[in-house]
Computed example of a mutant assay.
Amino acid sequence: MPQRTIEFGKYGADGIKGHLAVARQLDALVDYVTTPVTTPRGLHARLRYLTRTPHARAAARAAGLTVTDRTLKAWLGGARRPSRRNLGRIEDTYCTVRRHNVARYLLARLNRSGRGTRVEIHPLNQSGVDRPYQRVVEFRTLNVRRWDRIVAAWAAADDRALDDAWVQQIIDLGSQWGQYEYVTNVGFAA
């Protein structure tokens, strides 16, 4: 059974960890506000999302938005503009709360009542690797039926747990699973 890669890229291979590609794809499935937080419209949309109900306000505070109600009211009314640091906090808080809010819905879509979702795994790029060191790695597909741990780790932004959950899924590829720890892309739709 292969072990985890220790010196990835030593011979010139290019790719990213599989769990990061999964997180990127899950982020693509979530409808975030596309207008940048630096514009008045983007800022107002995020603040409205984070403050529209008492539950949303509590979630925003738990996620790290710790300004006073007076400051929030001034930002929403346009009387004051947040600093660059606060804009970063607003964006991070918004993404955290949004992930948490859509995780249950996304989980149901991906599990599809036990049928799962087909995942395409695109292997790492070996164009920079000298010929004698290249592996034979091919495009693979995998049907993931249990997304619970993956979505929970993604919603909590826990990289280590997401990596462990993803590796538990790619072990189903058999003895070659170590070749797919690093990939160029992981694709799936829900």
Rank of each mutant, 00 (worst) to 15 (best):
D163H: 14
A56P: 02
E120S: 13
V119F: 01
V22P: 01
Q168L: 12
A157C: 11
Q25Y: 02
Y105R: 15
S175N: 13
V37L: 07
S127M: 01
A190Q: 09
V137H: 00
L124Q: 12
L110F: 12
P123R: 10
T39F: 01
A152Y: 05
L87P: 13
Q3I: 10
R98Q: 11
L47Y: 02
V22C: 01
R140I: 06
R84S: 12
M1I: 00
A62K: 09
R4C: 00
A62Q: 06
A165P: 06
G78F: 06
F139G: 06
R115Q: 14
G64P: 08
R109L: 10
I16Q: 09
K10N: 05
D14N: 13
G77M: 02
G12S: 09
I170K: 03
G114K: 00
R24Q: 10
D92Q: 14
W75I: 02
T96P: 00
E7A: 15
V144K: 04
A63G: 04
R57W: 10
E120Q: 14
G64N: 05
I16F: 00
G64T: 06
L124A: 14
A45I: 01
R140E: 14
L142E: 00
H122R: 12
G64S: 08
Y133C: 11
Q25A: 08
L47K: 01
T68W: 11
R81I: 15
A59T: 01
A190T: 14
A23T: 07
N143E: 12
R98W: 00
F188W: 04
Y180S: 06
V151K: 01
L26W: 08
G42R: 08
H44S: 14
Q3E: 15
D27N: 13
R146G: 07
Q134R: 15
I150V: 15
T53I: 09
R48T: 15
Q134M: 11
V129D: 00
P2M: 11
P36A: 06
A63H: 00
K10P: 01
T34M: 12
E120G: 05
A28H: 11
L65T: 03
L29N: 12
A157M: 12
R99H: 11
Y180C: 09
V151M: 02
A103T: 11
D172T: 10
Y49N: 04
T93Y: 03
P36F: 03
L29S: 11
K17T: 07
G64K: 04
A190I: 11
T117V: 09
P2H: 03
R112Y: 07
R52D: 09
L124S: 04
L47I: 07
V136D: 10
A157W: 08
G114Q: 01
D163K: 08
Y180M: 06
K10S: 07
N111C: 10
N185C: 12
R160F: 04
R70V: 13
